[in-house]
Design a protein around this nucleic acid. Structure first.
Length: 272
DNA sequence: GTCCAGGCATGCA
DNA sequence: TGCATGCATGGA
């Protein structure tokens, strides 16, 4: 990876395996908006970003060194060699053709609080409506960053809301989960940073104690919000995929089941 | 109108 | 590492 500043932009070259559409619009994060020129605008970590790709260069528009090195490198997992991971996964027959077709999916390192709320909202829901509910949540309770973009509201802020407030956003029966979740995190009964630092099994056990969090949501939070790459969320799509692996996953998935899962999830949504 | 979506809590056997 | 059921809502 080579980083160069050109006026207000940061241009990164030499990042292999990074497709903007496949990474930002694949159902792991819900706050990136595709622009007409196929660039993306979004908010993460309280920061607005406009990112585009030209040939093999990633362009971070109007981005400071501080934000780039202090946040985005980690968020986009730019130091990790996803190409090497893909080559490893391709010893599986189904993934071999899938990766050829959809090369460039990365796992974003989202904030655990946002991931937790997002995936509680995601249950028994479709991606379009998940985005709708989250955007309403941010518009109403986040801080405005300009141009209609908002931060994801803090647990402290959301702890002031009632079940009815969450229901008004269209959260449906998940409103009661969100209400209790926000109060528990704001009050310190749930310490996400501590959970993130635990060994996987213990971290998962802690997440499963949370009202409204089951195995699927817990695995999503661990994978997308806490960097446990071996977690493999099994949703309705992945359960269909599992019929292709009656004897379980092959050995080449070991330790990176979550990355394999992202490719299989994408394949399933397009082919099953 | 019916079905479905990145599931979960609850009650029951 | 049981199984059935209700649950809110919006798009297809």
């Amino acid at each position: 990876m080579r980083v160069e500043r050109i006026e207000n932009n940061i241009v990164v070259s030499g990042v292999r395996c990074f497709d903007l559409d496949l990474t930002l619009d694949c159902g792991q994060a819900f706050r990136w908006q595709r622009q007409e020129d196929s660039s993306y605008c979004g908010v993460a970590g309280g920061r607005f970003l406009h990112i585009s790709k030209q040939d093999d260069n990633l362009i971070f528009e109007n981005t400071t060194d501080e934000d780039f090195y202090g946040f985005w490198v980690d968020y986009f997992d730019l130091e990790k060699d996803y190409d090497e991971i893909c080559q490893r996964l391709k010893s599986d027959t189904l993934l071999s053709s899938t990766i050829d077709e959809y090369y460039g999916i990365r796992i974003l390192n989202q904030e655990s609080w946002e991931a937790l709320c997002s995936f509680v909202i995601s249950q028994q829901n479709n991606i379009k409506r998940i985005k709708l509910i989250i955007s309403r949540l941010c518009e109403k309770y986040g801080d405005e960053l300009g141009n209609g973009y908002y931060t994801f509201p803090s647990a402290q802020r959301l702890s002031e809301l009632s079940v009815e407030d969450f229901a008004e956003l269209g959260a449906g029966y998940r409103a009661k989960y969100l209400e209790r979740l926000a109060k528990a995190v704001a009050g310190g009964e749930i310490d996400l940073q501590a959970i993130k630092a635990m060994p996987l099994e213990q971290a998962k056990k802690e997440l499963l104690k949370i009202y409204g969090v089951g195995t699927k949501v817990a695995d999503c939070v661990l994978l997308f919000g806490m960097r446990f790459y071996s977690c493999c969320p099994l949703d309705v799509w992945m359960k269909r995929v599992m019929e292709y692996y009656p004897d379980g996953f092959p050995k080449c998935f070991e330790g990176i089941e979550g990355i394999a899962q992202q490719y299989l999830f994408h394949w399933a949504r397009n082919n099953l």
